[in-house]
Design a protein around this nucleic acid. Sequence first.
DNA 1: CGAGTGACAAAGG
DNA 2: TCCTTTGCCACTC
Length: 109
Amino acid sequence: MKPETFNFFDKVYEVAKQIPYGRVTSFGAIAIYLGAARSARMVGYALNGSVAQDVPAHRVVNRKGLLTGKHHFEGTNLMQQLLESEGVAVKDNQVQDFDKVFWEPIKEL
DNA sequence: CGAGTGACAAAGG
DNA sequence: TCCTTTGCCACTC
């Protein structure tokens, strides 16, 4: 694997994999950590293949704590169930105590 | 290589 | 924090 292969997408996967249990992060936080704060959309775009990358994409939500990408999961409430199983309170597709479970790769990494 | 696209974010109302 | 508009930028075709 050459460094050139380690692109934006791959970095997103690496960061997402490092999200601690019971914690969530936002697309913007990951984007900033990757040095592309304005490419937050790409983070979500990359996570499209997160399932194939064994990435817990259910821990990645938008900056409001909303499970914007639940539509990309199998079921309609799978994403929420996964988070609740990890101890993250989710209500109406929105993460409760978002500021408490928020995990910033910038600080942690 | 140009046009379209998107799991967002920030700014304005 | 709600709704709308704008910007952005990496990826795909």
